[in-house]
Nucleic acid binder design. Structure first.
Lengths: 211, 211
DNA sequence: CATATATGAACGATCGTTCGTTCATATAAA
DNA sequence: TTTATATGAACGAACGATCGTTCATATATG
């Protein structure tokens, strides 16, 4: 049979999509080893054997999910990437907060799969993701629109500050949305974003006393 | 035969300790469903059947580990609790950083078990832990030595600020020690603690420009 | 026809748990 | 003390269920 390499058969990957969606739903709910191939087949509405027409092993399904998510996650039109690249730090601190919220909501499955990998595979599939984290933020800061650096206090490392802000928001919304600890600061999301931005910009201390 | 109910046979719980230690080591490495009771028995140097003289089910071992850790975690002599209760915010920001590091290192198994619960049990065993988080920090702030509140800017919620600082350090060291992303800010621990404290105290913005 | 795609029974391995048994020790009876 | 009885820790074979994976076969597509 001839298959033009770039061309895909149009209508015959419906089951592949169903299998991936089912695996994502189950892996993020009960983990990898807690999910059986029969669970996946039943959830996908597909026969058990048919899964192995698309994937050689159960782990291959998991890896495929991670790769698909990672690829989409770093697309320049995704909220956090867009916020990092389009606006300039530190003017965009609140924007980073809302972009973090949007990212955690949109990529909740991805983030949970990363946790699954950390817990059940000693992070072996995602280790490379974390390896050069600072370099990634530094690159984003180089690429961004100019005009923020002079607003940053001279004794503050701008890249580290950007990471601190981003991860603070990120972890807050992971706790809110993925660990389902709703309102754990006793504030609505919007107020929390504002509070964090307020503290990041001018600090916790009152102004009259030098620290 | 008569057995006095309150009386216990004296010294025979060495194997119980071995079983718990083995289960902790394996659960934190490969997750709950990825660890078999035979794995635990082998690691503990104990027979398979003997495990069931101490625990009715595998899940009961897991729950027992969580409960033991939780109890110890909240003892007033543990580093983070001690820092929260003995010194006053915001003077103790750096101390909170180092206490967070000590806590993550000392309770690494506990934290990993919490992640296991989130990933494999939908957080059903630890959900109550997170439920009243703000109330716990508010109580700690009430109990602490007095004398810090007037140093906090009037538009900053002190309890939320305390939570923000603590969780920032906490998540930093979880990434460092448990996810094994060493030096992900490109700084040694001590410098990272100082940098975060600097930003938390006086903010990212340079002083001359109002925000 | 030839070729993907789909099915579910079947395989061997491993799972959590149970079972019958052994054995060292503790107490009761002698 | 010696003997009898009771206890429960410890063992590992065994059980039924379920696991990931394979395979023979069927159907649909071209």
């Amino acid at each position: 049979m001839k298959t033009i390499p770039g061309k895909k058969k149009p209508a015959q990957k419906a089951n592949l999509g169903r299998i991936l969606a089912a695996a994502s739903k189950l892996f993020t709910k009960q983990g990898f080893h807690g999910t059986s191939t029969r669970d996946i087949a039943a959830e996908a509405g597909v026969s058990l054997g048919n899964i192995y027409n698309y994937f050689a092993t159960k782990e291959e399904i998991f890896v495929s999910l991670l790769e698909t998510c990672e690829k989409e996650y770093f697309q320049p039109d995704q909220p956090l990437i867009k916020a990092l690249l389009s606006s300039s730090f530190p003017d965009n601190i609140e924007a980073l907060g809302f972009a973090s919220r949007a990212t955690v909501e949109k990529f909740s499955a991805y983030i949970l799969l990363i946790y699954v990998d950390v817990v059940e595979f000693e992070a072996k599939h995602v280790a490379k993701l974390f390896a050069n984290m600072r370099a990634g933020y530094a690159a984003a800061m180089k690429t961004r629109g100019a005009g923020g650096l002079e607003k940053i206090a001279p004794d503050v490392d701008p890249v580290a500050a950007l990471m601190m802000v981003t991860w603070n928001y990120y972890n807050y919304f992971i706790m809110e949305k993925l660990f389902k600890v709703k309102g754990h600061y006793g504030l609505p999301d919007t107020e929390a974003v504002k509070l964090f931005a307020r503290i990041f910009k001018r600090g916790i201390l009152a102004r009259k006393t030098g620290d």
